[in-house]
Design a protein around this nucleic acid. Structure first.
Lengths: 238, 238
DNA sequence: CAGTGGTCTAGACCACGTT
DNA sequence: ACGTGGTCTAGACCACTGC
């Protein structure tokens, strides 16, 4: 891990431990540079990370302060996730039921969403997720075989994200999500135990690897009473 | 505007103009440094911005490439908002109807959300927004007078965000949003013309200034068939 | 092994807030 | 006027890719 990342990690620990209180000023950059025996530029790169996570506020001409709203920031960071499975690790038992698993050619819409040729086959996976045996989300995923291979039904019952990272050795990158509300459909009633007129929280996501290749287009339907989505909007850099 | 921001702007224009195609490599950092007559570090800071906007992919040991999924990134950037009003500027007519406007003391929950003492009064504003005369969202906002002042019903009918930025001279910072689905309530039926069993897309947001002070806690209810929320998730920096 | 991006430094000057 | 963070440079070395 690079130097500025180590510095960021240590400063984060101090803030979380309450060494610096919300609203309080951190030591001057020059002082931090002395303490960590680095250049000021390295300190600044470390502060960039904390700033992006909304842990600190920077005021030119004044100082660097622990974000007054720091405590609310914690949830966000921890929800930066990697697949649904990790989120509840330790808190509850997540189980996955694979309702459908096949390899087929993509529709036109799908090949467009995945940025692939329509001749490249895709996995079509339909899963139901339960939390302590209570159903809470229904996910339909499409993944191109040109990017993801050797997927099996058994892997889909565990964590596909873990498989991609650990077994395929690929690095997961950014995701674009579209969130909307929808009316209940037949599958929602059948699998999510919804009532006829319950609302559904729907998320359509396109997930990429670090090299930019899209590896998943998925639609997830959540019970409206089981979970919401927390989002953090940064002010634009330009 | 600083040098690296100018460079970022120019490179962004080139990408948008198609001078560099999706998937294609940008010139080497050293070459860009020569062209813009800057140091390589400055080029890197410029690339940081484009990277954060998902316009480019960086591969150590290989090069810098226009993101293969670049085109999908455009929507996101343009949805980086500033209040609802700007979003549709030019495309449609947004009108706002102020249903309620008062100054009162906050409830315990509200003073907690806003991080203020319960003795500080707040604006309580309830607005209905229409797009070309079709209702699409209903917003209940709470703002502390310790941060925002001189607000009037007339301002609320225009754009509160514009008032804060231009008239009060305050800089808007980050926002935390919680998105969920909900059942229709009486107000939704009355003002949004919803049917009894239509789902509602609800957003609860806490918006801060650049100095970290929270200036708004708001709950917005959208008709499920009028709009969705697009979100961009970056991979964590540490 | 050559070429690329990533990290890091020491030092300089600028922009802004505070006093 | 002073102290703070913001920007910028030139040069060095490291880490990784791909031939």
């Amino acid at each position: 891990m690079s130097l500025y990342q180590q510095v960021a990690k240590k400063l984060r620990q101090r803030i979380e431990a309450g060494n610096y209180q919300p609203g309080e000023a951190l030591p001057r950059q020059a002082e931090l540079a002395l303490e960590f025996n680095t250049s000021r530029v390295t300190i600044q790169k470390a502060l960039d990370i904390l700033f992006n996570d909304n842990l600190i506020i920077r005021k030119q001409g004044s100082g660097t302060y622990v974000s007054p709203t720091y405590s609310s920031a914690l949830d966000i960071i921890s929800s930066q996730y990697g697949g649904t499975t990790q989120l509840f690790a330790g808190k509850a038992t997540v189980s996955t039921q694979v309702l459908h698993f096949e390899i087929r050619l993509p529709t036109d819409e799908e090949s467009q969403k995945l940025h692939i040729e329509s001749t490249i086959p895709v996995y079509d996976i339909y899963r139901l997720r339960k939390l302590d045996n209570n159903p809470y989300e229904l996910t339909k995923s499409i993944m191109p075989l040109s990017v993801i291979s050797n997927l099996t039904k058994e892997v889909a019952e565990r964590s596909i994200f873990a498989f991609i990272q650990h077994d395929l050795g690929l690095e997961i990158g950014n995701a674009v999500r579209r969130i909307s509300a929808d009316k209940t459909k037949n599958d929602d009633i059948q699998y999510l135990d919804c009532e006829t007129h319950d609302p559904i929280l729907q998320v359509s996501q396109t997930v990429s690897l670090k090299d930019g290749r899209i590896f998943e287009y998925a639609q997830t339907r959540h019970r409206y009473d089981k979970g919401s989505i927390v989002v953090f909007n940064k002010v634009p850099m330009v």
